[in-house]
């Protein structure tokens, strides 16, 4: 049995009333949801909120899931949309409160990563990612961290593969410059 049919089976069991099957699905995807949201939003509290929100959406909307596609694509679509919405919401909030882009580098709850060296490397990369435009950041995260193909990213974001490749090219080039600048 492959991942897709495993997931589909769990969804069917959940839809027939087995809450334990939902817990298995949640446990399987919660970490991926967190990291995608965290890399997009660069904030622990926001990423945590997205995880909770996505789990709630999964729980209430799994009855609308179309079994012809993979469950993780469906979950990514919800996660990506919610993350982008939160970025927009925060941008609007900043405009109306007349605050600058980020007053304080608030990474929140640092203890989610145990190893200090990894934590430092992560925070450095998070800062670089944050300086990318949202569309470029999204495709860079999906390609390099989530290991999604352009076809999968296209089905999640609704963007053409050509546009995604162009965004990825710019993101990659900027990340190269940012890392080099940081190393110098």
């Amino acid at each position: 049995m492959n991942v897709k049919t495993d997931d589909h089976q769990l969804v069917r069991e959940f839809l027939s009333g087995n809450e334990q099957s939902f817990n298995i699905l949640a446990r399987k995807y919660q970490e991926r949801i967190y990291w995608h949201a965290r890399r997009m939003l660069a904030d622990h509290d926001d990423a945590h909120d997205i995880v909770q929100e996505v789990l709630l959406v999964m729980h209430s909307k799994l009855n609308t899931f179309n079994f012809s596609s993979a469950l993780y694509t469906w979950i990514y679509k919800i996660t990506a949309t919610r993350s982008l919405n939160l970025i927009k919401k925060k941008k609007l909030k900043r405009i109306f409160t007349f605050s600058s882009y980020e007053i304080v580098d608030s990474y929140g709850y640092e203890n989610i990563i145990d190893d200090i060296e990894t934590k430092e490397r992560f925070l450095r990369m998070e800062k670089h990612l944050k300086s990318l435009p949202v569309k470029q950041r999204q495709v860079f995260v999906m390609r390099n961290y989530d290991d999604l193909s352009y076809e999968e990213i296209s089905s999640i974001t609704g963007k053409s593969i050509g546009a995604l490749k162009a965004n990825y090219f710019h993101a990659f080039r900027k990340m190269k410059e940012l890392i080099k600048k940081n190393d110098d």
């Binding site: 970490e31 203890n111 990563i113 390099n144 290991d147 990659f172 990340m175 190269k176």
Partner: peptide, 18 residues
């Protein structure tokens, strides 16, 4: 320089949450 970007992202790809 580009490989360095790949290396940096790969190191953080399998990051585990507490």
């Amino acid at each position: 320089k580009y490989l360095n970007v790949k290396t940096e992202t790969d190191k953080l790809k399998k990051l585990k949450l507490n």
